[in-house]
Amino acid sequence: HRPRAHDGQRLDGARRLRAQPSQQAVQPGPYWAVDAGPLRIIGIDTGLLGTLDAEQGAWLREVSRGPRPKILITGSPLYVDGEHHPCAIEGGGTVDDIVRDPAHHYVAAIGGDIHNYQRYPVDVDGRTIQYVVSGGGGAFMHATHTIPRVSIGNVTEKDFRCYPLRGDSLAFYSRLYGRRLRLRRFFTLTEAEATAVIAERLGIPPTRLPGEPARVTLRTRLVASLLGAGGRPDRTSRFRLPVRKIYTQLFSPSSATYSPPFFKCFLRLDVTLEEVRLRCFAATGNLAQELDPPVEDEVTIPLTRTRPTGL
């Protein structure tokens, strides 16, 4: 942010709207660091552009020093949708450079913004840093079926995790577009059909088959292509309906579902002196799963130099 002539007046006006002491925050800025037991949790403000200014970059380098294990919380994920977004810092360098520096002892970087869950266990010079996307707690669901076959940062499909599963995501969007375009019979895919066509397009074994495997037909292939289902790097769809940015702008305000399953999720971290246990719980809206939320992904991060183990 660059200072402007009327910033002071706007700030005074905002303070008048929150005049009571109980309404006033003491946090000095939109970025922060909290020491919680053996961990230091560091939150940064990447703004609308997904970058850091020079002042915040200098602060991040300062609070990242020292032997205490650290977790970064960022609005813009560093790994997302099979891509690496290191987050530039004004004046040079990136946020991911700081996270990867072995002198800073980061064990995880958790980003929001995208309304689903993804995890990339990236090997950095013999140690594993867990790069997590966890923005699936509210509003509409961002598609996971558009994520191509993962091969980035030495992370492959075998290591990658996401929720909802790509097949569930494709089935959800097929119902959504079938309803909106009044072409239910053409667009709607069952979970089994969606899972089968995703496996074919990515060249991977089906995940969590809902019953008997479904046959992949010309219709299921066409629907998957129209809805932007991910594929192998050598195959791309020439045409697809809006399921990401344009969908977010046009349809998202009225597309939040109020009928289970919701495909929401929440992240829980349990910390001891020896390890961090990271779990992604599904929030489906079904009573049984509300009482006992299912764990969709789990990984244990040792606060030592040994590698983490996960599901």
Rank of each mutant, 00 (worst) to 15 (best):
E83V: 14
E83Y: 05
E83C: 04
H84G: 00
A88R: 15
A88Q: 14
A88K: 12
I89L: 06
E90S: 05
G93N: 11
G93S: 13
T94Y: 05
D97P: 05
D97H: 12
V99P: 00
D101A: 15
P102I: 09
A109Q: 03
I110C: 03
I110F: 05
D113F: 13
I114H: 10
N116L: 13
Y117E: 02
Q118K: 07
Y120F: 15
D123S: 14
V124C: 13
D125G: 10
G126K: 07
G126M: 09
T128I: 15
Q130M: 09
Y131K: 11
S134P: 02
G135N: 10
G138R: 09
A139E: 12
H142E: 14
T144M: 07
H145M: 10
R149N: 13
R149W: 09
V150M: 10
I152P: 03
V155H: 10
E157I: 01
K158T: 13
D159W: 05
D159K: 12
F160Y: 01
R161N: 06
C162W: 03
P164N: 08
L165W: 08
D168L: 13
D168V: 04
L170I: 10
L170N: 07
A171S: 15
A171W: 07
R175V: 05
Y177Q: 01
Y177P: 01
G178M: 03
R179Y: 01
R180V: 12
R182L: 10
F187T: 01
T190Q: 04
E191N: 12
